[in-house]
Each structure stands twice: as structure tokens, then as C-alpha cells.
Amino acid sequence: MTEPVLTVTSLVKRFGPVVAVDEVSFELMPGACLGIVGESGSGKTTIARVLAGLERPTSGTVTLAGEVVRDHSRRARRWRARQLQMIFQDPYGSFDPRQSIARSIAEPLRLHRPGARERHRARVEELLDQVGLDARAGAALPRELSGGQRQRAAIARALAIEPRVLVLDEAVAALDVSIQAQILTLLDDLRRGTGIAYVFVSHDLAVVRHVTDTAIVMRHGRVVERGETGRILRSPQHPYTRLLLDSIPAPGWDLDRVARDRRALDPHPAHGESSCSTSTT
């Protein structure tokens, strides 16, 4: 029996009166891919940031590779970094603008995989190759690359640490649709090749269908539906999931029905639009 590589138990995160994440639990098996979907403001990014150690949970636990993540000592942070890495939505801001992509990728290598300089250089080339970038892109500054290239570089930098879990927060949302498909294909190949597990955060159901096996649907910080991604999309159980599906522009798209669903779900649309309710209803 295999152990989950990541377990989240009753995670709560409050920002003052705002409950951004409310009693969320899930687990992730090695090499699996879990989708977290929901509208903007539903708490997806907050979960991702808690996982990456950028926010402390108000309560609840995160268990990585069988160990409960607790303190924020330097050693603990390095250990956590070796288990879990994160890709941010904005590929423009993810790099020090002053140094070349290759240098940025070499930095985590030096921290986590000490070794000879030549070994590192060879490994950087290997990583660049793995994500479909050439040596020219490696020598370039971040601003000289396209958004898609930068996101590939960010993936290479995360892979340098060889984490067991990669959290991707809207990793393709800022990219053109055709580039999105390329990056998603790359992620799929990488997962097959390395056995890394993904937590794939997205508001885009089409994208989630592409890459994830299982998914949780979030609303106002809570999980309203969970299960196999295909099943959720084929026969959604929760009215909110149905609303999300109906909200995708498609042939025969019925705006009136979307509005009706929304009213049925939330009697005060002005409140329910994007903000998290302060007290759970």
C-alpha cells in the first residue's frame, strides 16, 4: 500500500474576519494529479501558498512525505522545499531580472544538490532540454523570453530541486491558448517521466480536464464537491459545479440559465460575486 505524498487535514486560513480557506482536506498520491477548481476568490491561491510555506495556516495540518510540516526553521524550510515546489501564475515576475535564466536555475541546484560547478552546468543544460529550451534561452535574461518560455524556465528551476510535489497556481492562465496546450503537454510528459505529483490550481475547467485525475471544487473557501475529474465534469452533483460548467462559453451557451443558477445558489448576488463570505452560511 502506498502512502500519500501530501495530506491536508482540516486546513483553515483566516485573514482577519475573512475565512479564505475553511476546513479543507485532501490527499495526493505519488505521481498523481489533483485539480483544485473554483471561481476567483474561492481560496485556491491561499491553499497553494500555505502548501508552499508562504502563509501559516490558522489551523489544520499539512503532512508531506509522512511528516507533519510544523516549524519555520531554516532546516525545516529547506526540507519542505525539497518535497514541494510551486509555480506561480506570473512568469514575468518569477525571475531576478538581472541574471540569466541558466544562472537562476543553477541557484537552487547549488543550495539543494551541492556538487562541482561543471556538474551543475551540465545539469542545467539537461533541465533546459527537459522543458524544451535551448542554450540560447538559458543565456538570455528573463525579459528576453516569451511568457511560455519563461514558464518553461520556471518549471525547469522547480525540477532542479527534484521535489515530489509541484503546486501550480494558475500556471497557464497568463498564456495564449496555443501556448497553454504546449505547457500542459509538457507537464503531462514530465509527470510520466519523473513520477512527480501535481496540485493543479485553476479556474479553468477545460484546462483541469486536460491534466488532472481527481479534483476538488471550492466555493467560499470550502470544498463543495470532490472526485474523479471526468465524473465531476460529466455529472456534477453540486449546483455550484453545474454553474461553473454552464458558465463556460460554448455553442448553445445560455446566459439566462447561468444567471438563474447563480440566483438559486446565492440569494444575494452582490455578495456572492467574488468575495468570500465572512461567516459561513
Binding site: 508552499a52 510555506g53 508562504l54 531554516r74 524550510r77 529547506r78 519542505r80 522545499a81 525539497r82 515546489q85 510551486m86 506561480f88 506570473d90 515576475g93 518569477s94 525571475f95 531576478d96 531580472p97 538581472r98 541557484e107 537552487p108 543550495l111 539543494h112 520556471a154 528551476r157 530541486i161
Partner: peptide, 21 residues
């Protein structure tokens, strides 16, 4: 800037990031 958070996620210490970046 977001890249500073990237370094934190990668496990770098705050002062080392301040000195190096």
C-alpha cells in the same frame, strides 16, 4: 516582487536573498 517569494519557496534564507539579489 514575486521573484522574492520564489526564493523563499526554494528554501533560501531571507538574509542570503537580501545579500545576493
Amino acid at each position: 516582487r514575486p521573484y522574492m517569494e520564489c526564493y523563499r519557496v526554494m528554501g533560501f534564507g531571507e538574509w542570503s536573498v537580501a545579500l545576493r539579489h
